[in-house]
Amino acid sequence: MTTQEDAGDFERLHALIATADIKGFLDGMSGHAAAAMTKATGRRIESAVTLRRRKRSTTIAGSSDEAILLDGIEQRLGDGPCAEALRTGKPTLIADVSAEPRWPAYCENLAASGYRSVLGVPLDLEEDASGALNFFAPAPGVFTTETTAEAAVFAGMASHALRLAIRIAVAEELADNLRAALDSRTAIDLACGMIMAQNECSKEQAIEILRRTSSNRNQKLNTLAEQIVARVSGTDSTTTYFED
């Protein structure tokens, strides 16, 4: 790829950051990766990406359903070029599955799916995340030194864009959690006010009544509070208003 083409790929990757979720971003990224390597090698290449985030399940995306199935072979077996790339931080190549002594079960499954070579390239992410791109080719010897270098360049650009996408996703997750916490607090505060009015008691006493009733019913405190508010006010709406 030329420098101008690299810049174009970089701009397209950053445009993908606006997608609604990480999975959507990864689908778009793997599609661009497959297109870039198809152009570089002159052969049809499928691409899949594996993303692991702390306290999150592994996310797999691909340039096609077939690519996701191919990546799933390694996930099912637990080892292969993607895992090796993650361990070493370097591209891992299987030039020909029929001549590869490592991961015999993986190579056998890949060959049965009609693919003869694969390249795993690590993504440079932040400490709480790791990921790798896998490129699959139907013929052996497709990934040369030059095309491997180009895949590494693409992975570098993709890593930068993915780091931004993850930061945005984390910020949105934190905001969603804050909204949920404040909504729960709103219901509890309203229920406490109603209990205080009905029983002529202090807020501390009202909270204790809520907690005791919640424990006796084996029911979450906020769920009980929402039910009290709904029964007294005749409405199910106890959410906090946010202006986005």
Rank of each mutant, 00 (worst) to 15 (best):
A171V: 09
H160S: 15
S214K: 03
I166R: 11
A152M: 05
A149L: 11
A158Y: 02
Q205R: 05
T145W: 01
K203D: 09
A149P: 04
A180N: 14
T144E: 03
A187V: 04
Q205H: 07
E200T: 12
S184R: 12
A180K: 15
I209S: 08
F154Q: 06
C192V: 11
L164A: 12
S214T: 09
A197Y: 07
Q198R: 08
M157K: 11
L182P: 03
E200Q: 13
E150N: 06
D189T: 12
T147Y: 09
D176S: 13
R179L: 10
L178A: 13
L162W: 04
S159R: 01
D183R: 07
A175F: 08
L190K: 13
G193D: 08
A175V: 03
A165T: 14
L178T: 15
G141L: 00
A149D: 11
G193I: 03
I207W: 08
Q198E: 01
K203H: 13
G141A: 00
T144C: 05
A149F: 09
S159D: 08
A191L: 02
T148I: 04
I207T: 13
A149K: 08
V153M: 09
S184N: 13
T147H: 09
I168F: 13
A206N: 05
Q205W: 01
A158R: 03
F154H: 03
